[in-house]
Amino acid sequence: MKKMKFIAQKFKMISTCLVVLSVLLLVSCDKSESDSASTVAVLKSPTVITSSSLTSKTASSLGDIGNGVNLQPSYYNNGNCDLGWTLMKQNTKIQTVRIEVEPGQETNAKRWISEAKANGYKVIVSYHKSSVLGSDSASELLAAGTWWKNNYASLGGGFIVNLMNEWGSHNITAASFAAAYNAAITEVRKVYSGSIIIDIPGWGQETAIAACAVKGCATGQTKITDTNIILSAHIYPGAYNQAKGRYMIAADLDDLASSGRACILGEFGSIGGSGADWSGIVDYAKTKGWSIIGWAWAGDGLGMNMITPQFQAFVSGSPKTYTKASYFNTVYDKL
């Protein structure tokens, strides 16, 4: 979700009309954090519509993820969405889709995933519980792991698991982050042996904390024990690295790479606060061979949608027509 010190939540509220799902949790961040957070939260909250140094392995070394775009269809037409494959296939730099799935949308998600694979895309699927984004609740992360155990096979398999979207606040410690992920990963491993994408804490911005959660930065510190993981940062203009006391800079990606694990930018976009050079950071990630995945093909709710109109209702055998939105090239030119 959107970034910076911000408590954002891509709230994708599931009710009719729009809901600002309780604003947010940025509890012990300083004033600039609070300001940025609320800004981004609103920007990424969709309107609900009814009817290095230690060079890390590149993500491509773990399966050639490729660059692509995010889709957030759970909150439109009750999830019964036409995803716009006809237009997407005309824009061949898009190789990968990251699909966010709200629990309760499993039936629709099975179709979304099947269509993405049938159209030749590499698929990442992210468990996305809108009401707990940025949470430090280990029980919520474990619930995500259990959800994967119960649903991976029925969703069709053959995709990369993004265990949970933006779990962990700016304030979580590396040891707590690692301990919670160790428990959740144990559940996922009961049904899935592939690479697991882990969104780093602080809405995808706390690079140093994530690196310490993997390699340990204190004697006897709990570390993430599974080595077949991919660390995912989320980059926006308001991206804030609280551990460093400043907005994110390109060198933060070197910190993440020092973990020795594969790394990607699981989200990036041009809206939401200010202070971080989002464009320069994305370019730097590409020089490191990282896959980058833009926010968003559709489903953002406000300004960061590559296509227009928003997701339309799915009708089998009658694909909907979409056109490029003014924001399209902001993402596509980076891929």
Rank of each mutant, 00 (worst) to 15 (best):
K288H: 06
V315D: 08
D35S: 11
S176K: 07
A59S: 15
Q105E: 06
T225M: 06
A257Y: 01
N108S: 04
Y152C: 04
H234F: 06
D30F: 06
V123L: 13
G303M: 10
L18K: 07
G272W: 06
Y127N: 00
S316T: 14
P237D: 03
I229P: 05
C17L: 12
G120Y: 14
S259H: 07
S137R: 05
I307T: 13
A210T: 06
V123K: 13
E267N: 02
N78G: 11
A218S: 15
E100Y: 14
G317F: 08
T55M: 02
Y75G: 14
I235Y: 05
A213G: 12
L24I: 10
I200E: 11
V331R: 00
W147S: 08
N150D: 15
I197E: 09
T92Q: 13
V48I: 06
G216S: 08
N119F: 12
I49Y: 09
K2A: 14
V19R: 00
W167D: 04
N91M: 00
G272C: 08
C29I: 13
V97I: 15
D255P: 00
S53H: 09
I14G: 04
S131H: 01
G104K: 04
L24G: 12
I271E: 11
G273Q: 01
K122T: 15
P46Q: 03
A178Y: 05
P73N: 10
I249E: 15
L335C: 03
N165M: 02
S28W: 09
K31E: 12
S32F: 07
I113V: 15
F6L: 14
T219N: 11
P309F: 02
K286P: 02
S52Q: 01
Q310C: 02
G272H: 04
G245Q: 04
A153P: 00
